[in-house]
Design a binder for these strands. Structure first.
Lengths: 376, 376
DNA sequence: CGCAGTACTGGGAGCGCTTCCAGCAATTGC
DNA sequence: GCAATTGCTGGAAGCGCTCCCAGTACTGCG
């Protein structure tokens, strides 16, 4: 049932770059209410004033003007004020591109997310990371670029951005197995900070959540509740976080002296969880708990369990991982491991800033915590 | 209960810009497995080759080389090949910043999201918009910048980005009442495409979901089910989408000849929904249906209804709006209005590209559709 | 009074690329 | 055979800014 209206098809997005976008300057609409047809006099920003114009107006050299703009020393009070005035009068704003070219610094950093499916970014996880990053970038002059390096093309473009210093640093997330982006990062001439540890190597700079610790916590919780036949559903085996969670699971079971062989791995998705849960049920009908490495999968598992007539948590207890918003609304509400996602983003940005400033910060592992609801 | 590890505090993010980031060039780690200490020979990217170097190596002028790079005409076949070879040998990649300065085109567009709270971006809605945008940008040479213009500072920076043409176009979302960004947009010297119609004016270029139609659909569904005392919870009155949904609600009730005065408005959040629902219940204990302008609010409302002992949908039917992931997991699963978010992003990007190319596309309204689950 | 500082000052050379234009050779038309 | 195309070609002038550096003016001190 659709609300009737124009259907979206749109014209094919042509190779705009080649067409050489004719600059459109006549966009304008009154900021006032639509009714009163106030033809607001748009202060025609014909062309941004340049530093030369400022200098001329202030009666100083361009160098002096530049010094004032960047408040560098060696400018007399009088000139400084004259320039300041000229800037205000003209509404001068330094041209970031020119500055970037001259200083060889782009004034931007990029958040790159690897993966094979762009839709992955839909995971609310990333949005919160972005917000965290934004919170620290906001206090700097750095812009944030977003790169969903999801296709070969996307990766090539990311590489290009880094090679030509279109960005001064990069935060790299969710690298899988032998991600080609690892090489890109290694050869990048700009600082790289990883979000999450890749599987195959230990980056110099990274921020990660304590996945292993969180998984141990979750599993210990299950053990403490008297569960004895505990299974786990992990993610893809080439994914760092998933493997760390599996480790934590094993840590806890080792301490408890329980069997840790009930492992299945599915896709990090609802369906992946359903499938894995079904397999597990087949394999060990008497299991009494499952630690599931992502809430999305847990949701799927819950569904299968319900269909199989197993009560949660009475028959089988479930603990998820990530604490997604939906975890509060499943039946029953999901006990899960929460990671400080906002902090993850924030700390990645801070670390990147530090590296860009020449420091050599140590990797950071952020604590995770168990959120107890009803499923375990 | 926290997994023990270093706590996140991090140093204060200093004014890195002023410190003048000393370029760090020694970042490197082997792409191979961590165990085998393969000291991979990093192909030291000393300095990117310039066009001059390419030209010299190919034995042509810089102009000619430039023409080849941009595959412009007026280059002999021989030279073209020579340049091509030199490019390959040197691994030349044009410097985007220099090119931007020369052409006065940044090669980037920005997605700006207005609002007073950066956390708003956490709404999965935006992530999906981003994915949609990315899907079309991916085929171009344009980079995507993200601007959470949430503070005055953020807005000022966005303005600066636009004024200095750090970006060639902007997609502007979720403007509220008299958003200062409206003026910024009006005076921007680059194309602006709006996502969603602002309340106070009709932008020249925008893509919107058919909020009004969707709301009508939802309400008609309620009417068709025999409900007679239908209320609605809207969002903040200065929010365009919310008002459009209220209109749709009224449209449907007008046709059915029912009372449309049962309106309450809360914040677009779970708590906002709870509060509004409670007020409504107080005001009209005999209501038998509620159309709620956002799923987040609906979740809150559902909670209140359950606590009040009203069965959903038996006693009161609920329809939400947005079709967030959690809508499938509420009790009961939420009937809601789905909007094509991915398409929204995609069409915004396409429209922006079109405007940048000099076209004057018409505004676009994307259809919404009712997703029937159990709550109504 | 002269000399070494010290605090400004502006000229000018880049940053790496695009693009205009004049020059030139190889065609073409008459 | 000569002028008028046509197609290449490279020199050079930017794009708007930073920053080095040589130069000037002024101070203090012996």
């Amino acid at each position: 049932m659709w609300s009737g209206r124009r259907i979206c098809d749109g014209q094919p997005s042509r190779a705009v770059r080649e067409a050489g976008w004719p600059v459109v300057t006549d966009i304008q609409f009154p900021p006032g209410k639509a009714k009163e047809k106030t033809k607001v006099a748009i202060e025609t920003p014909r062309r941004q004033p340049t530093l030369d114009e400022v200098a001329e107006r202030a009666g100083v050299s361009r160098s002096a003007a530049s010094r004032v703009i960047n408040n560098a020393p060696h400018v007399s009070r009088a000139k400084r004020e004259a320039v300041q005035r000229a800037v205000d009068d003209l509404g001068y704003v330094p041209n970031a591109t020119a500055r970037a070219l001259a200083t060889q610094q782009a004034g931007a950093v990029v958040l790159a997310i690897s993966g094979d499916d762009p839709a992955m970014f839909t995971d609310p996880f990333f949005a919160e990371v972005v917000v965290g990053i934004n919170s620290v970038l906001e206090e700097t002059e750095l812009e944030l670029m977003l790169s969903l390096a999801t296709s070969t093309r996307g990766q090539a473009r990311l590489e290009q951005v880094l090679r030509t210093r279109q960005a001064d640093g990069v935060m790299l997330m969710s690298l899988h197995g032998d991600d080609p982006l690892a090489a890109v990062a290694a050869n990048a001439s700009v600082p790289v900070v990883f979000g999450g540890r890749p599987l195959n190597f230990e980056p110099r700079y990274y921020v990660d959540a304590d996945n292993r610790g969180g998984a141990r916590l979750a599993t210990e919780h299950l053990v403490a509740a008297g569960r004895r036949k505990i299974a786990t559903i992990t993610g893809r085996p080439d994914e760092g976080a998933g493997m760390a969670r599996l480790q934590g699971f094993r840590d806890a079971l080792a301490v408890a002296g329980l069997d840790n062989s009930l492992v299945d791995n599915g896709e990090f998705s609802e369906d992946g969880g359903s499938l894995a849960m079904a397999r597990l049920l087949e394999r060990a009908p008497d299991l009494d708990a499952v630690f599931i490495a992502s809430d999305q999968m847990a949701v799927g598992a819950l569904r299968v369990l319900a269909r199989a007539g197993r009560a949660v948590p009475a028959d089988v207890a479930i603990v998820g991982f990530n604490d997604i918003p939906a975890a509060r609304h499943t039946t029953p509400p999901l006990t899960t491991v929460n990671q400080p996602i906002h902090a993850l983003g924030r700390e990645m940005a801070r670390m990147l800033l530090a590296v860009m400033a020449g420091d050599q910060p140590s990797p950071l592992i952020l604590p995770t915590r168990l959120v107890t609801r009803s499923s375990a």
